[in-house]
């Protein structure tokens, strides 16, 4: 019980970070996915490649550049100055920015796939029935692309919970601020505290299993309702 009280702030912080990141990712990722799906711009492939980069880059590389960008000499430092801070590195806000960039392809890709699968026709039908583009998005595109949004949200959330390299580079290990589950497990193992390390690692294992099961169920449900 004592061990749980000790690890609870870490779990709460991790869930809070993942929740905020997922919301920001859906807000930023949806227009990017929409643009990538429907644009005829020559920049389309370049932007798509940039969005996909975090998928293949080592987290330490992303973390390194983020550290520079969020530090006192980078734009992060300039933003922090506006609020009386010195840098966004090693802060919760910096961690949110890093997580959003790191998990972006995990949200954009499934949402974009859903828009692709839907095609333009339902939106054209809605337009000829008097729906403005904004109205057609909420009444037609969003409900039809719901499986993509759910998959994207789940992947973005779980990926943020599981991130390690980026957090280590830009967040450090500050309890209640930047100490997330993956960092805590590493820290417990380093200091030979096997009990809390087991609890966190076991918890992550069960959590990940449930998420995968949930995603399979969602896919099955929407697959059925579509046919």
């Amino acid at each position: 019980m004592l061990e749980f009280i000790e690890i609870w702030p870490t779990i709460a912080l991790t869930l809070y970070l993942a929740g905020i990141t997922t919301i920001v990712l859906l807000i930023i990722g949806t227009p990017i996915a929409w643009w990538l799906c429907y644009t005829k711009s020559k920049w389309k492939d370049i932007i798509a490649a940039i969005v996909t980069l975090p998928l293949v880059l080592p987290p330490t590389v992303i973390g390194f550049y983020l550290l520079i960008a969020l530090g006192p000499q980078g734009p992060g430092g300039w933003i922090a100055n506006l609020f009386g801070g010195r840098s966004l590195a090693f802060t919760f806000e910096g961690l949110v920015i890093g997580s959003v960039i790191y998990s972006l392809p995990f949200v954009v890709q499934p949402v974009r796939n859903s828009f692709d699968a839907m095609g333009k026709r339902p939106l054209e039908v809605a337009a000829t029935l008097g729906a403005s583009p904004w109205n057609a998005f909420w009444t037609v595109a969003f409900p039809l692309a719901r499986p993509g949004f759910m998959t994207g949200a789940i992947l973005g959330f779980t990926h943020t919970i599981g991130e390690f390299g980026v957090v280590l580079m830009i967040g450090g290990n500050i309890t209640g601020e930047t100490r997330v589950i993956s960092i805590a497990i590493y820290d417990y193992v380093e200091t030979l505290q096997w009990g809390p390390a087991h609890m966190l690692a076991g918890g992550m294992l069960i959590f990940s299993f449930i998420i995968i099961l949930l995603m399979m169920k969602i896919e099955k449900y929407f697959g059925k309702s579509r046919s």
């Binding site: 339902p122 337009a127 000829t128 039809l144």
Partner: peptide, 29 residues
Amino acid sequence: KPHKRSVGYIFQEANLFPHLTVHENLLYG
């Protein structure tokens, strides 16, 4: 823009909205 023109358009395929019932589809426009 299309939504400002009072035009009905019947495509080769019906293109009903699958997330709505028949009644809701009819009432969309």
